[in-house]
C-alpha cells in the first residue's frame, strides 16, 4: 500500500523557554492510502498537536513529517501554504465556512485558489454537493444551514481540491446524534468508494466505532495502534 503520511520521531514542546510542555514526545506514524484512522486520547494527550503537525499548520520542535515523498517539515512557508492547498483537506470542529459565500461558493473557493477553470469548479462543486446530499442548498449561505449541513459542506470543501488526505479535528463534536451519523455515513462512503484517506482526532465513540484504525495517544506518545 502507498504511504500517504509518515512522521519520524515527531516532538513538540510549547513554552520551552518558560515552563516546557511536552505536547508530543517522539511520534512515529505511518498512514496508508485509503485508511480511516481515528486518533483518540484524553484532553491534552496531543491529538490536535499531532494533526497540526501532519497538516503543516504548526512546526515540530524536532522530527520530520512526510506527505507522499515530500518532506513537509522542510518546506518554506510559501511553499508549505501551496502544498496544503493542493494536498491536504481540512475539516474543523466549528465548520469554519466563509459566511458571505453560499454553500457552492464555499466549495468552489478552494478550487478558485487552485486556479481551476470555472467549468471545472462548477462541475466539481455540484458533484460534491450531491455526494454530501446538499444539492438543494447550493445557493444557501452557511447561517441558514444547520450545524450538520454546515459540516457536510465543510467536508465537500475539504474534498474539492482532490487532496491526498483529509484531516478532521473533532468534526462531530458540535453535532447532534443524527447529524453526526449522517456525516459519518458520508465520510465512510467516501472512504470506502473513493479510497479517500481520512485522519480524525476525536473523543466521539461514534467516530471510533466507524474507524478501521484507532491510534491512542497518551502524554504525547502512541500508547496503542489498533487496526480492525
Amino acid at each position: 500500500m502507498t504511504k500517504v503520511i509518515r512522521t519520524e520521531n515527531l516532538t513538540k514542546v510549547y513554552n520551552h523557554t518558560v515552563v516546557p510542555v511536552h505536547a508530543l514526545g517522539g511520534v512515529d506514524l505511518e498512514v496508508e492510502k485509503g485508511e480511516f484512522t481515528a486518533i483518540i486520547g484524553p484532553s491534552g494527550s496531543g491529538k490536535t498537536t499531532l494533526l497540526n503537525m501532519i497538516g503543516g499548520l504548526d512546526h515540530p520542535t524536532s522530527g520530520r513529517v512526510f506527505v507522499g515523498d515530500t518532506e513537509m517539515t522542510a518546506l518554506k512557508e510559501s511553499k508549505l501554504i501551496d502544498f496544503r492547498l493542493r494536498n491536504i483537506g481540512f475539516v474543523f470542529q466549528s465548520y469554519n465556512l466563509i459566511p458571505v459565500l453560499t454553500a457552492k461558493e464555499n466549495i468552489s473557493f478552494i478550487m478558485l485558489l487552485q486556479k481551476r477553470s470555472k467549468e471545472e469548479m462548477e462541475a466539481r462543486a455540484i458533484q460534491l454537493l450531491q455526494e454530501v446530499g446538499l444539492t438543494d442548498k447550493a445557493d444557501v449561505r452557511p447561517q441558514k444551514l444547520s450545524g450538520g449541513q454546515q459540516q457536510r459542506v465543510a467536508v465537500a470543501r475539504a474534498l474539492a481540491s482532490r487532496p491526498q488526505f483529509v484531516l478532521a479535528d473533532e468534526p462531530t463534536a458540535n453535532l447532534d446524534t443524527q447529524s453526526a451519523f449522517n456525516l459519518l455515513d458520508i465520510m465512510q462512503k467516501l472512504n470506502e468508494e473513493e479510497h479517500i484517506t481520512l485522519l480524525f482526532s476525536t473523543h466521539d465513540q461514534r467516530v471510533i466505532d466507524r474507524a478501521r484504525r484507532v491510534i491512542k495517544l497518551v502524554d504525547g506518545k502512541i500508547a496503542s495502534d489498533e487496526r480492525r
Partner: peptide
C-alpha cells in the same frame, strides 16, 4: 475565518 483561509491554502 482568516486562520481557516490560511490553513486551507490561501497565501
Amino acid at each position: 475565518e482568516l486562520g481557516m483561509l490560511m490553513a486551507v491554502g490561501m497565501n
